[in-house]
């Protein structure tokens, strides 16, 4: 049973993570590199002269972008381990898990890990002013945990008491609020910041939908494998 969890999570996470990493390189990285030109002061917003919105960006960097790909695959493998743990428990309680139902698990994972913390702690472009990183990380983990429990209760709860508790769990982190900086000092134009957050969410959703589907598929397949091995 351990191997079923591990093998399906590694396959699903590596595959979805590779696609996520490539999508990030194509859609997010140019925006990030553009922002870094402002972060480092190479170009200045509201300086003496108007600044081109299409500056020349550094191209593909094998070391930097290769590391990004590896770390994206690792991150999505981490997501996959948590996702498949939940799928395994849910299947035992009667849920159907396969590549098709995995899609909705993927959407739920995106909501819990990206959208829920991102609504109040928006994906940060380099150079933004932000509160202490440790405080934000505590808020991030608490928000993700509350969202995971909330979504589970919505999906598998059976009465309004449970669903009400789920709504409270989903809303509470945002009512309480995330750690915020004392003053704004970001040198990056708002246009770039907004595009960055939007792209981060878009790529995140696409990657999570794939992750959910792959996780469902490999979970299902590994189950069939183990059954046939057991019968042989």
């Amino acid at each position: 049973m351990y191997s079923r969890f591990l093998v399906s999570a590694i396959f699903a996470g590596a595959a979805a993570g590779l696609i996520a990493g490539l999508l990030q390189l194509v859609f997010v990285q140019p925006v990030l590199l553009h922002a870094e030109l402002y972060e480092t002061g190479a170009i200045v917003h509201f300086g003496a002269a108007p600044v081109s919105a299409n500056p020349e960006l550094p191209g593909f960097d094998a070391m930097r972008d290769g590391l990004s790909l590896v770390f994206t695959m690792l991150t999505y493998t981490g997501y996959a381990l948590i996702l498949i743990a939940a799928m395994g428990i849910a299947e035992e309680r009667g849920a159907t898990i396969d590549g098709r139902t995995g899609i909705i698990w993927g959407v739920a994972g995106f909501v819990a890990f990206h959208l829920a913390p991102g609504i109040t702690l928006a994906p940060e472009v380099p150079g933004v002013a932000a509160a202490d990183v440790a405080a934000r990380q505590v808020w991030w983990f608490a928000t993700v945990a509350a969202a995971l429990v909330g979504l589970w209760l919505i999906a598998f709860g059976r009465n309004w008491m449970v669903w009400s508790l789920a709504v409270i769990l989903l809303a509470a982190p945002h009512v309480i609020g995330a750690p915020e900086p004392d003053a704004f000092a970001g040198p990056v134009p708002t246009e770039i910041g907004a595009l960055f957050a939007a792209r981060a969410f878009g790529v995140g959703l696409a990657a999570w939908v794939l992750l959910g589907s792959f996780a469902g598929y490999f979970w299902c397949r590994e189950g069939l494998n183990q059954n046939s091995t057991a019968q042989a």
Partner: peptide, 15 residues
Amino acid sequence: DAAHDVRHATGFPCH
């Protein structure tokens, strides 16, 4: 440093 771009692009708190 190695994970910098990924952390930003994934929406993790960075720095």
